[in-house]
Design a protein around this nucleic acid. Structure first.
Lengths: 185, 185
DNA sequence: GTCTATAGGCGGATAGAC
DNA sequence: GTCTATCCGCCTATAGAC
């Protein structure tokens, strides 16, 4: 519900009804709406960034890693399409508070690991050097955006649910090629 | 304010204070908060998609069009970084109502125009065939995402405002090459 | 057109019986 | 732990004086 309507868009009453309980019970267990929210947010945020960490730390080749990351991300996002918008909009609502509250995901470690992988391929003469951060950003851009834009695709273009799903499946295999081609020598 | 806090996150009182007037005056001129909101939303939404239409309808080459669209989009988004999140999150909040309310931007015409441009380059043997929708989606993905992810880049990676701006400028020129390379034969 | 005052409802949070 | 009742502040919208 937070994902769809945002923090202020949902009332404890709505949540309680959906959960088959009462406002009082929610306050009893979570002490406040804010705390209930940040519990959920933390959980979802970490879930979004965990799988990518595992893949990057593995000893697959760079090309394989790119492919796996895209697959994992898209599978997860197709199942939880409201996740990116939820995270992004709540992140803009009050950045400092929310981000300070999060556990440390070792993003910098992951990026330097990726840098080594890139170096290997550069030495082989297979790809051009690229900043690891840019590579990650490009991957995330291309996977996340179609999920975010889904309402527009379906409503403005009259795309059916079927053809949207088909497009997403096709995209899953094609994105890895696109990314790889874009950095190839 | 709607962009940062969402529809329910902002009160008429806040808006009135910011505008140097009173709640009553806002209600007098706009009749309700909902109507004030949809005025603003419509305006912003159209602004986001207007420039791209002009470029696509022009008689530049496909490569030039891609370059121009990216430049225009990124310049606009750097100036109004809260725009994409605002639009995307409000669109998810209640899709049908909002989108039905919007004027018709002739997206389908633009896509078929783009299809012709693609066909020209394919005949010349310069690029592989690609769905125009996919091309547009890839362009938008790569331009919009770094704007959306800005809070994370700056907070989690300790990126400075300076280096963020520098990255965005560099990206502006590089994205066109990336896109073109990804569809080249 | 612009102001003040207020209606009327919903929000989160708490008190207190059981 | 779970329920009902209730507090109190904030919200949008409107009424009505000027």
């Amino acid at each position: 519900m937070f994902g769809k309507q945002g923090f202020t868009g949902v009332s404890l009453h709505d949540i309680a009804k959906e959960a088959g309980t009462t406002k009082s019970m929610i306050n009893y267990y979570f002490r406040s709406k804010e705390k209930l929210f940040s519990n959920i947010f933390r959980q979802e945020f970490q879930q979004l960034f965990t799988s990518i960490g595992v893949v990057i730390s593995s000893d697959l080749s760079l090309k394989e890693k790119i492919k796996r990351i895209i697959e994992l991300d898209m599978d997860k996002l197709v199942r939880m399409p409201q996740l990116p918008v939820f995270i992004m909009s709540e992140l803009h609502r009050n950045t400092e508070i929310i981000l300070n509250d999060l556990e440390n995901i070792p993003i910098k470690n992951l990026l330097s690991r990726l840098e080594k992988d890139i170096e290997v391929e550069v030495k082989k003469g297979k790809i051009n050097r690229i900043e690891p951060l840019e590579l990650v950003m490009n991957i995330q851009s291309l996977t996340i955006y179609p999920i975010i834009a889904r309402p527009m695709l379906i409503h403005r273009l009259g795309m059916s649910e079927r053809s949207y799903q088909a497009m997403m499946q096709k995209r899953k295999t094609e994105l890895a090629d696109l990314i790889w081609k874009s950095i190839s020598t």
